[in-house]
Simulated assay, not measured.
Amino acid sequence: MERQKTRPGLADVARRAGVGLATVDRVLNERGSVSPGTERRVIDAARALGLRRILPTPHARQVRIEVILARAITPFMQRLTLAMGQVAETLDRSIVIQRTSLDMSDPASVAPRILGSRADGIIVYCEEHRANVAAIAASEEAGRPVICVVTDVPGSPRSAYVGIDHAKAGRTAGFFAARMVRRPGRAIVISTSEGFRAHRQRIDGFREALALHNPDIAVISGLITGDDQDRAYHLVAEALRGGSDVTAVYNTGGGNRGAALAIRDAGRTGATLFLGHELTEETRVLLRCGEMTVTIDQAPELQARRSIDLMLNRLGVTAGPKMEAEIGFTLHTAENC
């Protein structure tokens, strides 16, 4: 007598999909709280096993990604915010990009927003603060992946970091300063905040390159602008009043116009190199008129596209070969701005 085949059950589906029975139950009964990627695996496993029941349609529900950025008060953050919106317009209606802008003067302000998010995944720009690290860990533990954009939080279990290599960018600025100045002196570094890993890495890279290529130039850092034009002006003006041995000013953040104006008012345009970041209308003008030597652009438009693509891949909405998370930076002078 022929032995009757055993019909597949939920346990078989769970084993094939590599998940627990509770997850299979939530997917097949459409109870929610399951990532799109896991949902797809469960439905594919049930279909492959020939489970006798009506299966839900994968991705019938919306996939929501929350993008948490600083308020768009700097040209760079304006570019990044705009780029996130432009990428959102190219996506399927079932994918919702929710943009949240925060005042990040308090480094821990991002943590409550991460913890309170109900999105399927989070893309975030934030300082490497212990509260943010804990919030990212809690989000990942809850099955809500987090991708850091522009600046990394490597002490957290974030899913990925999308952005440039800031240490290389700082070393590039230091290389230019070392090779273009052939006399001893001081290089002044101004920065948005040293709470962001990106700025610390740029400063460290700048120091390393000068120590290697021109150790006669001393680096003076720790001058924090908060991206404020007036503060950048006063900090640079004060440094220049200390003497004519300031050979270079390197700005790792915003406030380029204020720094350039201080150099001009001190009569040091051309004599003191001015190196900074981002190609904006502001820096284009400064480069063309010779008040800025070089700017390093980190392609926020590409960062927006890559971070969203990576998140969709991480959530299982899209599939394909592994994408590179590192973004290449470009150099701009008066000749190619």
Rank of each mutant, 00 (worst) to 15 (best):
A108M: 03
V162I: 15
F196G: 10
A111Q: 09
V124Q: 00
D165L: 11
S117G: 12
D103G: 07
K168P: 00
S105E: 12
V189C: 01
R197A: 10
A169W: 00
G195H: 14
A119F: 08
A198H: 00
A209S: 10
S109A: 15
I203M: 07
A187P: 04
S101D: 13
A169I: 01
D165F: 11
G121S: 05
A167E: 13
Q201Y: 09
V189R: 04
H166K: 02
R197C: 03
H166E: 15
E141M: 13
I164E: 04
S159V: 07
V146I: 05
A198Q: 00
R158T: 05
M104Q: 14
I114W: 04
R158P: 06
I97E: 01
R202L: 05
S191I: 04
I122Y: 03
R202M: 09
S139T: 08
R197G: 05
N132C: 14
I188C: 04
A198F: 00
A137L: 06
S156N: 03
A108T: 14
I188G: 00
G170A: 02
R113L: 15
T172L: 04
R207F: 07
G170T: 00
I188Y: 02
D120F: 05
A178W: 02
G174Y: 03
R183Y: 09
I203D: 08
